[in-house]
């Protein structure tokens, strides 16, 4: 069919449909973001007139030990929320898909998948409420079950590890579900051929399964890394960044400066750096993925 020049009454009028989106987007995202960047160059308590101090907040930021610590904790949370769930999720989804699914039937596989996915349906703040109760130092279920008296979230040496473990629990179901969907798309003939050639399960997993679901692995790593960089809810509910700074993360650090210390300029600088890091990480991921395909 020849391309027809007919369009619903010309081309220009489509702009009109963008007007509500454009207005709202400007008011809710563009203007606040620009204001936040501008505020990061000032000293401001939230009332009165901000004082322009140039890069003052940023130089202070790079010398602030709490700031660096909070990013180290972010790195730890990327391990707990992106790296570990992806690795375990790969093994679990492959085991469910081509071992349990084939030997015990797809119903068993999907029941197990549902159990792994269950934590993902919770609002992350509610997941925090659940674990706060489970880990309570005086009446918590975990201590009662194991007969221990550990203050899981209150011990500065343990708190970060505990939060990491909770986040692994929370995130794990997401890669399992995404990877299993990816495996359904994959071609079973390759697997069968390798099996006939006598390749072991691990070899097939490494050389066939993983390459086939590369796009899914990229998506999971990217989205979970961004989620880890943004993490706020679990920290607020579980530890409030404490004890001391043991679980401080940039998002909570900026929140403290905005709403508790009235250091709005400093908080804005933290938030701007965080936004920059997230945009750069997203961009790098997309570049790598593009080159990969």
């Amino acid at each position: 069919m020849a391309p027809s020049p007919v369009r619903p009454r010309g081309r220009g009028g489509y702009w009109l449909f963008l007007i509500p989106g454009f207005v709202l987007f400007t008011v809710v995202i563009v203007v606040p973001f620009v204001m936040n960047v501008a505020t990061s160059f000032t000293r401001w308590s939230g009332v009165g007139t901000p004082t322009w101090i140039g890069f003052g907040n940023y130089t202070k930021l790079f010398e602030d030990e709490r700031f660096w610590t909070s990013f180290e904790h972010n790195a730890a949370l990327i391990v707990a929320m992106a790296v570990v769930p992806t690795v375990i999720g790969l093994v679990l989804s492959a085991a469910l898909f081509d071992y349990i699914g084939k030997k015990f039937g797809p119903r068993t596989a999907s029941a197990l998948r549902a159990a792994y996915y269950l934590p993902q349906v919770l609002p992350v703040a509610v997941a925090g409420v659940v674990w706060n109760w489970m880990l309570h130092p005086s009446y918590g279920a975990v201590n009662a079950i194991f007969g221990t008296k550990v203050n899981w979230l209150g011990d500065p040496g343990l708190a970060l590890a505990t939060v990491m473990a909770i986040m692994v629990w929370f995130q794990l179901g997401y890669p399992v579900v995404i990877f299993m969907a990816g495996l359904q798309r994959a071609d079973p003939a390759l697997h069968e051929a390798a099996e006939i050639d006598g390749a072991s399960w691990w070899r097939r997993f490494w050389h066939i399964t993983i390459p086939q679901i590369r796009p899914e692995i990229f998506v999971v790593l990217l989205t979970c890394t961004i989620a880890a960089l943004k993490v706020f809810g679990p920290i607020f509910v579980l530890t409030r960044g404490g004890p001391g700074n043991a679980t401080m993360v940039p998002s909570y650090f900026s929140y403290l400066n905005f709403f508790e210390k009235a250091n709005v300029g400093y908080g804005s600088a933290i938030a701007t750096v965080l936004a920059l890091i997230i945009v750069v990480v997203t961009f790098l991921f997309l570049r790598v993925q593009e080159r990969d395909s």
Binding site: V31, F33, I270, T282
Partner: peptide, 16 residues
Amino acid sequence: VANTLPQESLVYPLYY
């Protein structure tokens, strides 16, 4: 880009 921005970088102006 708007979709990946952390809400922390919008919150104070929105609040204000």
